[in-house]
Design a protein around this nucleic acid. Structure first.
Length: 480
RNA sequence: CCGGGUGUAGCGCAGUUUGGUAGCGCGCUUGACUGGGGGUCAAGAGGCCGCAGGUUCAAGUCCUGUCACUCGGACCA
């Protein structure tokens, strides 16, 4: 790769952690996209194809749980954004403003949506009168803008693509159930389709979404031990409904405030894939979302019969998987490296020797294992190999997470574990005070990622920081 | 917002200290041989040295200004 030189030079002048980050993400991200225009991502075709696959799978899951797709405007009038106090305060520092329309100065500034709660609320206020109008379950696939000061490819860019789901329900119970359901949809998607093991948890108050009553998140551990928030699901209570005066009449003709949720996943998922699975040879893509699931590489193409057989195999596999035949005149070695770098899960090598014996060589990307497969069995073997790659990737990531999850009772223990075993998740009890949360971050470098949903403190557990009785078990970690 | 760094061929860089014909690697083009891990050889194309002033017989190199990009810190999907 041409940019390798730059990488090596840059690394020599960086500390080790940063060099690792750089190798992991910049080198790999450049294959599929990069941040270039004013901190906004340019996503190349290969990267966009990954996103399209992510969209397809998630969208099906949303439809299956009763959501409808809509599209809200990109611009939000300032007055509308101002309606919910916490919400504005949270987003104000990072919104981009439109102040001119053509050469005319606008009477009211328009903000470029950083998220669309306010627009959905405006919509709800217009359409909801009766309990019969509830629930409404919407989703939209759009881009949003947050004027970040520092940007990173796929992990943080000023404009990013995402889906945002917005729902409104008659009761708090229903809304809470929705919040949890979508968190589960996200977690299942990450684990099954992306082969990324995730921790489900609730955000601490200091970390929750601006305007939310509760924020739930899935957190994944990258292979360098840093944590990445891969998706969020918020429960709003009736705060937005009150701010936007959304009311419905219940069965007894009483005016009630409905309860809302929102949830989102972004192109950051592509960053998560890169950072979780990537290795020294480049990307490793989960088969479900890989643009090319299997690449066929003919060897010694000039020899009679080789191109014909390769084309025949490609044709045969076309309906089974996303298959590409690379019949360019690059050398086979070059192609091997190329598709490994691009993370193609399965490679099929087909040369004169193979053809003579009615076989081919199948190589799985995650472990680079070679298997000889009879050509007439290939159609059955390929789906199994793809599954094998998914499972192998998941196990590898899970193992990495387990090796880098430390149970700690004291601050000293946290520092010792991190120093000895490297960055990772720290599982430690907490008293629920914000002061302790801050102190832990200051003294150990790990911030609170989320509160465990599966585990509560045992009797006698005390806060890792202040020593008072613990109320929650928290996942701590360094964040991207 | 604070503090560093860099602008020279498509990409990555050297050349700047000490002013004197514009260089290297990769990529690209053409052809030949090759082909089971980025293969070999040959011949080519490609530059307003970020921009604007200044000093000088002479500026990529020195001076002044300016623009752009980038990295780290603090904040965030």
């Amino acid at each position: 790769m041409a940019d390798m030189n730059k990488m090596v030079n840059d690394i020599t002048s960086m500390d080790e952690d940063f060099a690792k980050w750089y190798t992991d993400i910049v080198k790999k991200a450049e294959l599929i996209g990069y941040t270039s225009v004013k901190g906004c991502m340019v996503i190349r075709p290969y990267g966009y194809a990954i996103w399209e696959n992510i969209q397809r799978i998630l969208d099906n899951a949303f439809k299956a749980t009763g959501h409808e797709n809509v599209n809200m405007p990109m611009f939000i009038p300032e007055s509308l954004l101002q309606k919910e106090k916490d919400h504005v305060e949270g987003f104000a520092p990072e919104v981009a403003w439109v102040t001119y329309g053509g050469s005319e100065k606008l009477e009211e500034r328009l903000c470029v949506r950083p998220t669309s709660e306010t627009l959905f609320c405006e919509h709800y206020a217009n359409i909801i009168q009766s309990y019969r109008d509830l629930p409404k379950k919407y989703n939209q696939w759009v881009s949003v803008v947050r004027w970040e000061k520092t940007t990173r490819p796929f992990l943080r860019s000023r404009e990013f693509l995402w889906q945002e789901g917005h729902t409104i329900h008659a009761t708090a119970e229903e809304a809470i159930a929705e919040t949890e359901q979508m968190l589960n949809v996200y977690a299942d998607f990450c684990e099954n389709s992306l082969a990324i093991p995730v921790v489900k948890g609730r955000k601490t108050d200091s970390d929750k979404f601006a305007g939310a009553e509760a924020t739930y998140a899935i957190e994944a551990l990258m292979h360098d031990g840093k944590a990445l928030q891969a998706g969020t699901s918020h429960y709003f209570g009736d705060g937005f409904a009150k701010a936007f005066n959304i009311q419905y009449s219940d069965r007894r003709n009483q005016k009630k405030y409905p309860h809302q949720t929102s949830w989102g996943m972004t192109t950051r998922l592509i960053g998560a894939i890169i950072m979780t699975h990537g290795d020294d040879n480049g990307l490793v893509l989960p088969p479900d979302v890989a643009p090319i699931q299997a690449v066929i590489i003919p060897i010694a193409q000039h020899k009679a019969g080789v191109p014909e057989k390769a084309a025949e195999v490609a044709e045969q596999l076309k309906s089974i998987a996303r298959v590409k035949l690379d019949d360019t005149d690059n050398s086979p070695g070059w192609k091997f490296s190329e598709y490994e770098m691009k993370g193609v899960p399965v490679r099929i090598e087909l040369g004169p020797r193979d053809i003579e014996q009615g076989q081919c060589v199948v190589v799985t990307r995650h472990n680079r294992e070679k298997t000889i497969v009879q050509l007439d069995e290939l159609a059955d073997v390929l789906p199994k190999k793809l599954q094998e790659v998914r499972d192998g990737m998941f196990q590898k990531a899970l193992q990495n997470r387990e090796q880098h999850t430390y149970r700690c009772k004291t601050m000293d223990e946290i520092n010792a574990k991190l120093a000895e075993l490297g960055d990772g998740f720290v599982l430690a009890p907490w008293c629920e005070s914000e002061e302790c949360e801050d102190t832990v971050k200051e003294q150990t470098g790990v911030g609170s990622r989320c509160i465990s949903m599966t585990e509560d403190p045992a009797d006698g557990d005390v806060c890792v920081c202040c020593g008072k009785p613990a109320k929650k078990i928290v996942y701590w970690g360094k964040a991207y």
